[in-house]
């Protein structure tokens, strides 16, 4: 029975990982930009929620109306004014990747430094919806369930947009082949910028949802960038439902591994699983060969 509770906890944890990774997958899948400053927008969302409830005493969910548009706008600007010159200049994807990794890593340092200067390095947290609920026989906090629901909701919306709308079809076309997409009349740059911006907004949203039950600080962003990256690479670039599934797999393995082997080894187990998948299936678990 304890094992089952561990398992459920793993699923909740994994749903969180999937949620964090969704935005990154949108950015990397459609815009082909690996944004290493992604986690800073997660932290931004978390801090906005924190200030909303602690400073202004509103429901933290309302903070989404502030943090998501800001993150959207910032990421759109980053794509338009920082990434586009690099894309124009790069002779091939390898050279572009190297430049992008450096620039977004630089942005990560700048954002983190600014956050440290203005918000300090203290660990922050607040209580919101921490009432226990019974979920399939396991007792969980309401806020964790909310994050899982949020993850499923966002994934469902993304899935419908990508599969059922003309806009989504254009995004999928860009994911498969940006050059060919341009040839059939899709404005690749505009759509990529929108996808990139939307990914950033999702980072802020996931930051808000996760901040209800995990404390955070100005320096926690990079850990979430890394987690998200692991999930994206495990799932395969551009897969929405796969991202959620890979997140859940990672969460369950982490929870079970921590319970069965040693809690001190959870990070090691995480990386071990990730590296195994990278070696066996470098293109991801959920891509067609």
């Amino acid at each position: 029975m304890v094992l089952f509770e561990v398992f459920i906890n793993g699923i909740i944890l994994g749903g969180m990982y999937g949620l964090i990774a969704l935005g990154l997958n949108l950015q990397y899948g459609v815009a082909r930009i690996l944004n290493l400053s992604y986690g800073e927008f997660f932290v931004g969302g978390a801090f906005t929620a924190f200030f909303t409830i602690m400073l202004w005493q509103y429901n933290p969910l309302l903070s989404l109306f502030i943090s998501m548009p800001i993150a959207f706008a910032m990421n759109w600007l980053i794509y338009q004014y920082l990434m586009t010159p690099l894309i124009r200049r790069a002779p091939d994807q390898d050279a572009l990747d190297a430049d992008v990794v450096l620039v977004t890593f630089g942005l990560f340092f700048v954002f983190q430094g600014l956050a440290l200067v203005y918000w300090s390095g203290d660990l922050r947290g607040y209580t919101f919806l921490s009432t226990p609920v019974n979920f399939l026989g396991a007792t969980l906090a309401m806020n964790r369930l909310l994050a899982l629901l949020g993850a499923c909701l966002i994934a469902a919306v993304l899935f419908v947009i990508l599969r059922r709308t003309r806009f989504g079809a254009a995004l999928r076309a860009i994911t498969i082949d940006p050059v060919a997409a341009g040839l059939v009349g899709i404005d690749v740059r505009r759509y990529s910028a929108l996808a990139f911006a939307a990914g950033g907004a999702l980072a802020a949203a996931s930051g808000m949802l996760v901040s209800t039950f995990i404390s955070f600080s100005a320096t926690t962003g990079v850990a979430y960038t890394l987690k998200a990256l692991i999930v994206v690479i495990m799932a395969g670039v551009g897969r929405v439902t796969g991202t959620l599934a890979a997140g859940v797999l990672l969460g369950v393995v982490e929870a079970l591994g921590g319970y069965l082997i040693d809690p001190a080894l959870t990070i090691a187990i995480n990386f071990g699983l990730f590296m195994l998948i990278l070696l066996l299936r470098p293109t991801g678990l959920f891509t067609r060969a």
Partner: peptide, 8 residues
């Protein structure tokens, strides 16, 4: 911050 700007 300086390190980050250096990168860019």
């Amino acid at each position: 911050i300086a390190l980050g700007l250096c990168f860019v």
